[in-house]
């Protein structure tokens, strides 16, 4: 697992793995889209709009997972003085922002036919919007300092302060009465979702995860090369 902490071995391994990951992610994406648009059944109440779920839910998970990765790497980078964490923070933040934006847009497209409004000031929706603004602030901080050594530490500190939002997003549907439904799928209990809908959801989750990973590999390698050239 050395490649998760060392730029050189990361570059060596990802040069080998990048093309397989890209091919697998494209195949899974096409397969998942076919499954979710043609092979999965309509919902008995929501009709065909339930198919928005196959993009909405995986992108929401991916936005939380990206932030979690950034939190872990900024702790590692600040506490153990491993600069690879700063590289990942810089490279990964726009990907998380895009996933959050996809989640918000598909959610409001789903909310219009089902709830009757594009947007409700609901606990889950508001906290996800705050997550999007936090991603934007991270990108702004990345672009507004001239000194790189200052910028990356301040980004890491801000990521740690902003991580207060993550448990609020996760438990907002349990703590408050929200219009957004609580989670259907959890690790501890049997999922209350039919296998015919579960399959495309899992395939789309894997596909979006691999797409995110392949974009992240490209961005991280670019960042490593930039830093090596500027030395």
């Amino acid at each position: 697992m050395k490649f998760l902490l060392n730029p050189n071995s990361f570059q060596n391994i990802t040069n080998l793995l990048f093309k397989p990951i890209l091919i697998v992610s494209l195949v899974l994406l096409i397969l998942g889209l076919i499954f979710s648009f043609y092979l999965s059944p309509n919902d008995y109440q929501q009709g065909s709009t339930v198919r928005i779920m196959y993009i909405h839910v995986p992108s929401a998970w991916m936005s939380l997972m990206t932030y979690m990765i950034m939190v872990i790497y900024s702790i590692v980078a600040l506490a153990f003085r491993i600069p690879f964490g700063f590289i990942i923070n810089t490279a990964v933040a726009p990907i998380g922002a895009v996933f959050t934006l996809i989640c918000i847009i598909t959610g409001s497209l789903w909310g219009k036919p089902m709830w009757g409004t594009w947007w409700v000031w609901d606990a889950r929706l508001t906290s996800v919007a705050i997550l999007f603004i936090i991603y934007l602030i991270i990108i702004f901080i990345n672009n507004s300092f001239e000194n790189r050594a200052v910028r990356e530490k301040i980004v890491a500190i801000f990521i740690l302060i902003g991580s207060v939002n993550l448990p609020i997003i996760k438990f907002s549907v349990d703590w408050w009465n929200t219009l957004h439904q609580p989670a259907s799928i959890s690790k501890l209990s049997k999922p209350n979702i039919d296998p015919s809908m579960m399959t495309p959801l899992i395939i789309m989750t894997l596909a979006l995860m691999l797409v995110g990973i392949s974009i992240a590999i490209l961005r991280i390698n670019t960042e490593i090369t930039n830093r090596k050239n500027s030395l």
Binding site: I130, I133, I134, I137, F140, I141, N143, S144, F145, E146, N147, V150, F158, I161, G162
Partner: peptide, 16 residues
């Protein structure tokens, strides 16, 4: 040390 983006501080305070 931020010489470019003066509003960033207020935005951070308002989000927190």
């Amino acid at each position: 040390l931020n010489k470019r983006n003066y509003l960033l501080g207020s935005v951070i305070v308002m989000i927190l």
